[in-house]
Simulated assay, not measured.
Amino acid sequence: MMMFLLVSACGGLGAVTRFVFNTSIQQVWKRGFPLATFVINLIATFCAGIAAAAFAFHTVDHGTYLLFVTGFLGGFSTFSTAINEIVSLARDGRRRLAALYCALTIVVPLLCVAAGWSLIALTR
């Protein structure tokens, strides 16, 4: 029960952090590309790569991994918002931008996970 509550609390912290990042980026970025969600998901996937490597190399325990990845990063990252933004761009007739955003949303986070993993793996 305690782990459930802690993961929930970390998820709430992640969601609040996402809100702060999203609001801050949107105040500056006024273009059609949904930069806020993209940046948030890049940060989250990079951190997920670091966490996965740290867990795999026994640098952190399972509980810490769950709190950070399932809790905080689960609340922070927002793949569903990215998909909704892709659909909205396509519905607005901006299909090329939607296709670009879709491709970037799939490919770049994979690279970020790999980069995060490599950062930890190289220090081993």
Results as ranks from 00 to 15, higher is better:
residue 2 M to I: 15
residue 4 F to Y: 08
residue 5 L to P: 03
residue 7 V to S: 14
residue 8 S to P: 06
residue 8 S to T: 15
residue 8 S to L: 15
residue 9 A to Y: 11
residue 9 A to W: 12
residue 9 A to F: 15
residue 10 C to M: 15
residue 13 L to E: 03
residue 15 A to E: 04
residue 15 A to D: 02
residue 16 V to W: 13
residue 18 R to Y: 05
residue 18 R to L: 09
residue 21 F to A: 11
residue 22 N to L: 09
residue 23 T to R: 12
residue 24 S to R: 02
residue 24 S to A: 10
residue 26 Q to H: 03
residue 27 Q to D: 06
residue 29 W to S: 09
residue 31 R to A: 11
residue 33 F to E: 01
residue 34 P to G: 06
residue 35 L to D: 07
residue 36 A to C: 07
residue 39 V to Y: 00
residue 40 I to N: 07
residue 40 I to Q: 03
residue 42 L to R: 09
residue 43 I to Y: 01
residue 44 A to K: 03
residue 44 A to Y: 04
residue 44 A to I: 15
residue 45 T to N: 03
residue 46 F to H: 02
residue 47 C to I: 15
residue 47 C to R: 00
residue 48 A to R: 01
residue 48 A to M: 13
residue 49 G to H: 02
residue 50 I to N: 09
residue 51 A to V: 06
residue 52 A to N: 10
residue 58 H to T: 12
residue 58 H to M: 13
residue 58 H to W: 03
residue 59 T to H: 11
residue 60 V to L: 11
residue 60 V to I: 15
residue 63 G to W: 01
residue 64 T to H: 06
residue 64 T to W: 11
residue 65 Y to D: 09
residue 66 L to T: 13
residue 66 L to I: 12
residue 67 L to I: 05
residue 67 L to N: 00
residue 67 L to Y: 05
residue 69 V to M: 14
residue 69 V to E: 08
residue 71 G to V: 14
residue 72 F to V: 11
residue 73 L to I: 03
residue 73 L to Q: 03
residue 73 L to F: 10
residue 73 L to N: 01
residue 76 F to Q: 06
residue 76 F to A: 08
residue 76 F to T: 13
residue 76 F to W: 06
residue 78 T to S: 08
residue 79 F to T: 00
residue 80 S to Q: 08
residue 82 A to V: 08
residue 82 A to D: 04
residue 83 I to L: 10
residue 83 I to Q: 06
residue 85 E to A: 04
residue 85 E to P: 05
residue 86 I to D: 01
residue 89 L to P: 02
residue 89 L to H: 02
residue 90 A to E: 02
residue 90 A to S: 07
residue 91 R to N: 06
residue 91 R to E: 06
residue 92 D to F: 03
residue 92 D to S: 07
residue 93 G to C: 09
residue 94 R to T: 04
residue 94 R to A: 10
residue 96 R to G: 13
residue 96 R to K: 14
residue 97 L to K: 04
residue 97 L to N: 02
residue 98 A to I: 10
residue 98 A to N: 02
residue 99 A to F: 09
residue 101 Y to W: 05
residue 102 C to T: 11
residue 103 A to P: 00
residue 104 L to W: 02
residue 104 L to Q: 03
residue 104 L to P: 01
residue 104 L to H: 00
residue 106 I to C: 10
residue 108 V to R: 04
residue 110 L to Y: 08
residue 110 L to G: 15
residue 111 L to G: 14
residue 111 L to R: 01
residue 112 C to L: 14
residue 114 A to F: 12
residue 115 A to E: 10
residue 115 A to W: 10
residue 116 G to W: 13
residue 117 W to P: 05
residue 121 A to E: 14
residue 122 L to M: 14
residue 123 T to L: 14
residue 124 R to D: 10
